[in-house]
Write a protein that binds this DNA or RNA. Structure first.
Lengths: 143, 143
DNA sequence: TCTGTTATTTTGAGTCATTCACGATAAGTG
DNA sequence: CACTTATCGTGAATGACTCAAAATAACAGA
């Protein structure tokens, strides 16, 4: 179990809840706590809301998953960590896509010391309409 | 009154609360609702929490101010709108600085159609330690 | 200048996502 | 197998913000 090893390597205990959450998150990236809970409960109906938050918090701290907080949405989580990839969020339905750094490799990290700050991370969020929502709005206009 | 005119041009009524909030926000950019309320109450002690939210909401919709929501902070507001400037947030104290688009003029907007999305906005947030917090942490280490 | 309409503000309650506290449970060590 | 302690569950609490309806104030027209 690769996931079990990841947990152990981070000094965390291997529990069914954590494994299940990590697996679920692989298949549903950018999910929020609620969506994960709903999915996880299909196999483990007793799972509590707080446990999901606990797990998400612990695993985020351990670096096993990444929390993203797009404006207007609750926190989302994903397994892709470490690479500086960015996100494309639909302003309508909040769907999220991964975007590899668009301009060159890590151009967004340019200002390494600005206003006295030591910059460590550059986070880029693109906002737009996803394909589905584009269709919806054109249909609406036509009807 | 330039502010009054801005309000009227947006089809909004000119009220003391709105003028006061806009003025306050000029002097304290990147403030959150709570900070604005505290400052505004110095002159207008009866001002309600909800009024501040109402005003912030209405003025944001009208484009007279911009709402930013850095991960881990409550919503912040600023008067600079329309230019695509970005933000530099201190991971320690949440202080925020404006950053003009670093790489060229608007390079961050490169992916104009990705994954079927119609991209309209690119938002960049730099994270780092502000000068003050850098000092604090070095002092802590030394003490 | 007064009046009426309607946008704003206030008052008060309610929501949502998340966190805190603590007893119950189970992972992993010896 | 027993023990320590991380993790999970239960329950309550928080913070930021929204909703609803009554009270007030802007401002257009008389």
């Amino acid at each position: 179990m690769a996931l079990a090893r990841e947990l152990r390597d981070s000094g965390l205990r291997v529990t069914s809840g954590r494994i299940a959450l990590l697996e679920t998150l692989e298949s549903m990236p950018h999910s929020d706590a609620e969506a994960l809970l709903a999915e996880l409960r299909r196999a483990q109906p007793a799972l509590s809301v707080q446990s999901v938050h606990n797990i998400l918090h612990d695993l985020s701290d351990a670096g096993l998953l990444r929390r993203i907080e797009p404006a207007g949405s609750s926190s989302r989580y994903e397994r892709r960590t470490g690479d500086n990839h960015h996100h494309l969020v639909c302003t309508e339905c909040q769907a999220i896509e991964d975007v590899d750094c668009a301009v060159g490799h890590a151009p967004c990290l340019t200002p390494s010391a600005l206003a006295g700050y030591t910059v460590t991370v550059a986070e880029v969020t693109f906002w737009g309409l996803c394909a589905t929502c584009q269709n919806h709005s054109t249909n609406e206009g036509a009807s």
